[in-house]
C-alpha cells in the first residue's frame, strides 16, 4: 500500500518513501521512516508486512555491520544487495517467508552508485530507477520521460516531486508526506520532505 521510489544518477542514488504507517483502514502514524541508513554509504528502503520489514531490515543491517567488524572493510552496494537477496530467497522456501519489498541504494568509490530493486520473491534487478507499492505504479512513466543518464541531484529531486504530486492526485490512498534521502560520495543526506503543502508552491 505504501510507496518507495529510487533514482540513480551518475554519482548518487536518491530514495523517497511516503511516511504513513497504515493499519487496516486507519493511518496509525504519519511520520514513519521507511528509509533505513545501514552505513555511511548504504541505504535500504523497505515496505511490506509491518512486522517483517523491521525484523528483516534489522537482521540484514546488523549482519552487514558484523561483516565490517570482522573484516575491517565494508560490503559494497552490489555485495550488500546480493546478501539481502540471498537471505530473502532462502527464507522464501521456508514456512516463515518475509513479505518485504526493498530498494537497496549504495555508493562505492570505485564502482559508483548502485540501485537494486528486490521484491518479496527475491527477484533482483540492478536499475536506474525503480519503485514499489501502489504509488510506484504511477512513477514508471514519469521516470521514463524525465530520467536520463547525467541527471543531477536537483533534477532527481524535482522528479521525486513529480512522482509525489501524481500519487497525491491519482492514488485513492492518502500519502501526504514523502521522506527523501540521498547517498553519494559525501555519505548519506536527508533532503527536505515533499509534502502536500510544499508541492503547491
Amino acid at each position: 500500500m505504501e510507496t518507495i521510489i529510487g533514482i540513480k544518477g551518475k554519482d548518487f542514488v536518491m530514495l523517497a518513501a511516503d511516511s504513513t504507517h497504515p493499519h487496516s483502514i486507519m493511518v496509525l502514524k504519519d511520520d514513519e521512516n521507511k528509509i533505513h541508513k545501514i552505513s555511511d554509504s548504504l541505504l535500504i528502503a523497505a515496505t511490506g508486512d509491518q512486522g517483517d520489514t523491521v525484523q528483516f531490515v534489522e537482521y540484514i543491517s546488523k549482519n552487514i555491520l558484523l561483516y565490517k567488524m570482522r573484516n575491517g572493510y565494508e560490503l559494497g552496494p552490489k555485495a550488500a544487495a546480493y546478501f539481502t537477496r540471498k537471505n530473502l530467497a532462502d527464507y522464501l522456501r521456508t514456512r516463515y517467508a518475509y513479505q518485504v519489498w526493498l530498494l537497496v541504494a549504495g555508493y562505492d568509490k570505485k564502482e559508483g552508485p548502485q540501485l537494486t530493486f528486490i521484491d518479496y520473491l527475491a527477484n533482483t534487478l540492478s536499475v536506474n530507477h525503480g519503485a514499489h507499492g501502489y504509488g510506484g505504479m504511477f512513477c514508471g512513466s514519469i521516470f521514463d520521460q524525465y530520467h536520463y543518464e547525467n541527471i543531477t541531484q536537483d533534477e532527481a529531486y524535482e522528479v521525486m516531486r513529480k512522482c509525489a504530486r501524481e500519487i497525491q492526485k491519482r492514488l485513492i490512498i492518502s500519502q501526504q508526506k514523502f521522506h527523501v534521502t540521498v547517498v553519494d560520495a559525501n555519505g548519506v543526506r536527508r533532503l527536505d520532505d515533499i509534502t502536500a503543502e510544499n508541492l503547491k508552491n
Partner: peptide, 12 residues
C-alpha cells in the same frame, strides 16, 4: 510505543 500481534513495534 505501539505493539501488535502482526509484529509491529513503533514509537509515536
Amino acid at each position: 510505543y505501539y505493539l501488535d500481534s502482526d509484529g509491529t513495534r513503533t514509537m509515536g
